[in-house]
Structures are given as C-alpha cells and as structure tokens.
Design a protein around this nucleic acid. Structure first.
Lengths: 113, 113
DNA sequence: AGTTTCTACAACCATTTGGTTGTACGTTAC
DNA sequence: GTAACGTACAACCAAATGGTTGTAGAAACT
C-alpha cells in the first residue's frame, strides 16, 4: 500500500523543523514507545514545564505527535504515520540520486557502442 | 554494508534544520541531479545572491552538499550519503515503533495462553 | 590594463525560536 | 470545600534565522 502523502511545502518544513531539536526527537522516541502525559515528559528534561509544553506543541503542529485528554492530563502519543511520511520525502531524494546514476550508466553504455 | 553513522545530536540537528526550508530542499534536489555553481542556483530563486549563498552554507554545514572550486566559481554538489544518513535516523524511529507493536503482540499472545 | 563575473563576508534588520516566569482554570484527592 | 495537580496561555527575553545591501578580492574576457 502506497500512502498518498501530498504534503505542502509548509507541512514538510514543519516536520523537519520539529525533528531538528534533540529534546523533541527524544519526546518522539518516548511517546512512540509508550504514550505519556505532558507532565511526565516535563519531569524527564532539565527545563520548565512550559518549555516542554511548547516542544510538544511544535511536534503536534508537525503531526509527529497527537494529544489525547485523559482526565486532567493530556496524553502524548507518537504518530508513526508522520515518520513514514518523512521517510517517503527522503526516499524521493534517493530516487533522484538513483535516476542520475541511471543516466550516467546510460551515457557510458552509449559511448561503448 | 551497514554505514556506521554515529552522528552527534548537533549534527542531526543541522541535517533536519537544513531540510526544513523549501529553497534548501530544492537546492538539494537540483545539485543531486547535476552540480551547479552558486550563481546558477541564485538565478533560479527570487532572492539575492547572498541569500542563496547562505542557504548553500547551511546545507554544506549539514553535509547535505559539498562545494568544489572550479575556476572562479564554486560548484555545489548534492551529497547522497547525507540523505542516506538522514533516512537511517528515521528508520530508527520506525524500529522503535515496530518494537512496540512486537511487544503488544507478545502481550496479546500471552493472554491467549 | 580594464571590465565583468563569481564569490566571500560584514553589517544590519525583522521575525522566529527556545527558553523563562506568572497567572488562570479544570480535575482529582482529602 | 479546599488543596494539590496538570494544563493552557500570555508576556517577556536572548539568540538564531532568513533576508537585505554594500564592499572587496580572484578569475576570466576583451
């Protein structure tokens, strides 16, 4: 099954931007393994609750994480689909590269004729 | 062959940060297909030469692109290896996710006993 | 030699980012 | 009901980002 990505430039910006911070990458890692509340996450890092809250918001904006109310806490859950989409983006670059190799091969084959 | 990545947090930051801009992604696309000078690149975008120069510098800092002097111009060449490394990073997240699925499966299998 | 082309780099500016503290509000526990 | 907990959100701040213009040097063309 091929996932129809159809992402706007802005969405792609947000995905990579969100991944460009080690705290945020760590939050993705954790919440991909097991969902946890914002305060649980906040306890894990040497920064204020509000700072972690902002990181979660960035991840949420990029679709890398979803938040689900559960009583007074908000459970944060990593979204594997977004990771897959990001991978698809990088795959596209690899395709471009492979296409270039293909053209070079064709060129070499031609000179051998 | 498994590529030993061993990237520092800072390097990973730079790679994703560099990819979080559509102009820069476009530069990677172009230079992955065919190397081109900084001025050739600059002509392609609606911004100053200096701005494009800065974008190239960001990409170079992330290792996504390399610059090679050729007379008075600097040829910019996309680095497919860096793309591969970025892919490896995202693969790691997918592994985490798959591991979780594995644990859930194991748990379900256990309850069936 | 003089001019044009390509690049490097500094200075500057507005906006965004990543952090802080403080306040307010809903939910849970006593 | 009141206290404690978890969250949301605003205001603020320093640093980084993404852009600009301007100046200067190296290489190429005539």
């Amino acid at each position: 099954m091929v996932v129809e990505t159809e992402l706007t430039d802005d969405e792609v910006d947000r995905i990579f931007r969100a991944l460009a911070d080690s705290t945020r990458r760590d939050i993705v890692r954790r919440t991909l393994t097991a969902e946890s509340s914002v305060s649980e996450l906040a306890a894990a890092y040497d920064m204020s609750f509000a700072a972690v809250q902002k990181h979660v918001a960035v991840l949420e904006g990029a679709g890398l994480v979803t938040k689900h109310p559960h009583g007074r806490e908000r459970m944060v859950r990593g979204n594997p689909e977004a990771i897959t989409r990001a991978q698809a983006l990088l795959d596209a670059y690899e395709q471009i590269w492979r296409a270039r190799i293909g053209r070079l091969d064709a060129l070499l084959a031609e000179t051998e004729e």
